[in-house]
Design a protein around this nucleic acid. Structure first.
Lengths: 331, 331
DNA sequence: CTCCTTTGGGAGATCGATTTCCGACATGCT
DNA sequence: AGCATGTCGGAAATCGATCTCCCAAAGGAG
């Protein structure tokens, strides 16, 4: 019981393959309504579904786009992939998600796999601002590629990101308005553009004297390590800006265990506005990315002629989401 | 600058397409080492990569398997997909992940999309034990399908799941050993096999008189709703078994806000052992699925001849992970 | 030295759908 | 009526890689 082919449908409907194809693939060409009806009926009766490989081979297009994220262990990237999926599906396409395991080498491999005729275009959230460039440039020479959320130098293509500097300013301003002036930064992933930009923006605002804790990667475990260091310096600090929600979560959990009141003693902010934040006690103030708008713009760029994808960075404005972790009244 | 084809490689190496194919696709056939070297060299120099659609069309196999999960918003399913991805990649394949948005209709659609020549086989975590069956049965008639973590009646194929009854027993025994005897259940997703099995096992153990809170779906929001109901009955309860981590997380967060001590007043257990649990205060006791072993078995079944996939359920043994949320000494 | 076997390269068929091109027929205009 | 124009179905080419066959050359046996 092998799958029905177009030929089978055509025979069942008493027409040629060409006519059947015109009806089912929706070619802009008139077909006698009666024949069309017979084809539709036969296709439905046989449970016909076009062979994807054959169609892709002939048309040179797969109707699938891919996205390579640094890791799915970070819920922010799951949320991001989901936002892209929404828009891709709305446009009638399919999305393939790949995980780069936070490693530029694996990232390059995933990009190659997807590009080998599996996707029409690709979104990449580059692992590293410096090391991801070459692989992306190579990919961009073959198919449309748009960077998302982060950029990479030498990528040769456009990036749709958040205005990280503005986001850091929103957070610092908010903290200062609530009377906190001894603000520390817990940052991670300096190799990524977002990590670097957040650190740079903070240093610019606070000067070199400000306390910063740098961690290798964006994980909750790193957040806990940061927590220990912050606890040691608790008397010189009244607020901590974290470069990612996963860091904030680990940090708050450590502070809590060491009986450092949040926000009473130290206010804490996250970054990315992932869902878990609501659940913590206290819920954590964060930065919301306009993911849907960003995804829409990125998809538009992906489908645009390549001259519109010159290497540059387009920035979207962040939104501050205030929660109890920075509440003045709760001290 | 269009992508190089096999023909281009063959010409550059001065051989026929057939020979080039034999070298690059690794057909079990001897080729003169000198020619092989020339082909390899040419392929490398031109940056040749086989066209996936063409190969898939000819060989009838894509090297890709798919997995349809109820939702990626639940980190457990992300973890599950990741475990499967590990094994698929180790076997030289690629995994496509699809999200069914907790809706059997969308699930059926996703299955169809994947099956239309995109994948060699499919893992499905069925949304509903009753409603998911037909679509899966249809799919299983076309390609190998293996259910994972949950089963569905009338699916016509094998399911690799957890022994949910044993898991509930582990939890209840553990709680009773720590002196808790007024145990309530917070269960969700009665439409899913796992939800139903957990409820059934609990009822079997505790009798009909036991307190149970039933919720429509596995979300943290549902967990908070449950929290409010548990708070109302706090004096008749000293422990709560939750049917999922996301429920436990929402529940603990609500209890905490209502100043009900955990585990002092009420002990709480989760289910699935997702990563967030470690972060909570207190960290939550849970059930760990042997996901890697399950994924390995499922992949084996997927690649086995179809007669080994008769409709049945294979159960793996759960493991209890004790954390502070059920600690007796912490009261 | 001839015949048979083995080895390995190449021509061409093939997978299933789309698309170009051609021809048959109908329609409209003069 | 005669010719241009337009509509629409079908035959066949096409996408790129694989795989079946056939054939040439080399090696071995008698």
């Amino acid at each position: 019981m092998t799958a029905p082919r177009l030929l089978d449908v055509a025979e069942a409907a008493g027409v040629s393959r060409a006519t059947a194809s015109r009806v089912l693939a929706g070619t802009p060409r008139n077909v006698d309504p009666e024949l069309a009806r017979r084809v539709e009926e036969a296709a439905h009766r046989l449970g016909y579904q076009a062979n994807h490989s054959a169609r892709a081979l002939r048309t040179g297009t797969t109707g699938t786009v891919g996205v390579v994220v640094p890791t799915l262990a970070n819920p922010y990237f799951v949320q991001l992939a989901d936002a892209i999926a929404q828009h891709v599906r709305a446009a009638g396409g399919t999305l393939m998600v790949s995980d780069a395991a936070n490693d530029p080498a694996i990232e390059a491999e995933q990009i190659d796999t997807l590009l080998a005729g599996r996707v029409d275009g690709l979104f990449v959230v580059p692992v590293s601002a410096t090391e991801s460039g070459p692989a992306i440039r190579k990919a961009a020479a073959r198919r449309p590629v748009v960077l998302f959320d982060r950029w990479a130098t030498g990528s040769g293509t456009v990036a749709v990101t958040l205005d990280n500097a503005a986001a850091v300013r929103l957070l610092v301003d908010h903290l200062e308005r609530t009377g906190r002036h001894r603000i520390a930064l817990v940052a991670a992933g300096q190799a990524s553009s977002s990590g670097a930009e957040r650190l740079a923006a903070f240093t610019e605002l606070q000067g070199d004297g400000a306390t910063t804790v740098l961690l290798p990667n964006f994980t909750t475990d790193a957040g806990r390590t940061a927590g220990r260091r912050i606890v040691e310096q608790r008397d010189r600090i009244d607020a901590v800006v974290c470069g990612a929600d996963v860091l904030a979560v680990g940090l708050v959990s450590t502070l809590h265990r060491c009986s450092v009141a949040v926000p009473g003693k130290i206010a804490v902010t996250g970054f990315d506005d992932t869902e878990i934040l609501e659940l913590f006690d206290p819920p954590i103030t964060s930065i919301r990315h306009p993911l849907s708008a960003m995804a829409e713009r990125a998809l538009t760029l992906l489908q645009a002629p390549s001259r519109e994808r010159t290497e540059r960075v387009e920035r979207f404005q962040p939104q501050l989401v205030v929660r109890a972790s920075t509440d003045v009244t709760a001290s």
